[in-house]
Amino acid sequence: MKQIQLDSLQMNVYETRELMGQAAGKAIEDTINKILLQKNNIRIIFAAAPSQNEVLAYLKNSKNIDWSKITCFHMDEYIGLPIENPALFSNFLDKHLFDELQLSTFYKINSLNEIQDEINRYEQLLREAPIDICIMGIGENGHIAFNDPPFAKFDDMHFVKEIQLDNISRQQQVNDGCFKSIQEVPTHAITLTIPALISAEKIFCIVPGPTKTEALYRLIEEEINENMPATILRKHVNALLFTDESCYQKG
């Protein structure tokens, strides 16, 4: 494992994706238990994407996490898909993590509600108390959640908003196997904003695989700027990035 310091962000590079997922999962597990020594409930934001599979599998199989003390959020949701569609991010998290766990609460974004009402509802929930942990990835275009360039704002006044997906984001969903064609991918979504994500006390960012090589290279090399939204992670004082050699070695 290699450790690389990127401003305030620590990046750990593992030989394989499996080792990366185990290390990230163990670090998250340890952090959860450390926080639970100090408070009775933890609030966690989760990404929902195949890039998170190894970490979610570790957390799902852990025998050392008291999920009854964890309140969960997810960071984005498509607009326009029926509630039973497996591509919905809330359904992805249910399948890969939550279905067999006894959670305190999983607050789902319901994009079938009137959109502004749902944005207001979810923003209120997020602001009720501090976010302890955010578990995220980065997109092929450098987005975090669905804050795509050039519309990402580091100083967004809101915690939740409606956005239009750029074509790189939509194509990534096809590349990830979530849809058969870009025509099937919704054009709009509800997303947590960058201030909502980085408000978390601790951030774990998991970035495996060769499809993210260019995005990781840009995160490392570019100035911190809104056209590469993930660069904001380099300013967070308590963030860890986990990647594997298949992603990093070509950077």
Rank of each mutant, 00 (worst) to 15 (best):
T193L: 02
D30N: 14
H158Q: 13
M1W: 04
N64L: 11
F154T: 08
S68A: 13
Q3C: 09
E15M: 07
R121N: 12
N110K: 12
S90W: 01
D244L: 08
K39D: 09
N85M: 06
K60M: 07
D148I: 02
S181T: 15
C134H: 04
E222A: 14
K63V: 08
L101F: 04
I138C: 02
D66M: 07
Q5T: 13
H188F: 09
I135E: 00
E128W: 04
R170F: 14
T211G: 03
E128Q: 15
N110W: 06
Q22Y: 10
D99P: 01
A215D: 05
E114S: 10
I163Y: 01
K63L: 13
K161I: 08
F242I: 04
T243K: 06
T71I: 11
L126G: 07
G142C: 06
D66N: 15
L165H: 05
N238C: 03
Y122D: 01
Q5W: 05
E118A: 09
Y58H: 10
S68Y: 00
A27S: 14
A57S: 15
E223G: 03
I70L: 10
N175M: 07
K95Y: 10
R121G: 04
R127Y: 11
D155W: 02
C72F: 05
T105I: 07
I119T: 09
P82R: 05
K34M: 10
P150R: 03
L103Y: 08
I138P: 01
G137L: 04
L88S: 08
I138T: 01
E123N: 12
L241I: 06
T31D: 07
I144M: 10
D117F: 09
W67I: 09
A152K: 00
Q183S: 15
D30E: 14
T211M: 12
I133G: 00
C134M: 13
N91T: 09
D166I: 15
I138Y: 02
H188Y: 09
Q249Y: 14
L241H: 03
A47G: 10
I206K: 00
T211W: 02
G25S: 06
Q173L: 12
L103P: 07
D76W: 07
D117E: 13
E214N: 15
F106L: 01
E140L: 07
L36V: 12
L219G: 05
C205V: 08
T211K: 09
L192F: 07
C134G: 12
D155K: 10
M75V: 12
K63T: 15
K69N: 13
E77A: 08
I168G: 00
N40Y: 10
L126P: 08
Q183L: 14
N40F: 10
L19I: 11
N64S: 15
N141M: 05
N53T: 14
Q124L: 14
I44F: 06
E162W: 03
K212E: 02
D94P: 00
D156G: 02
E29D: 11
L241A: 12
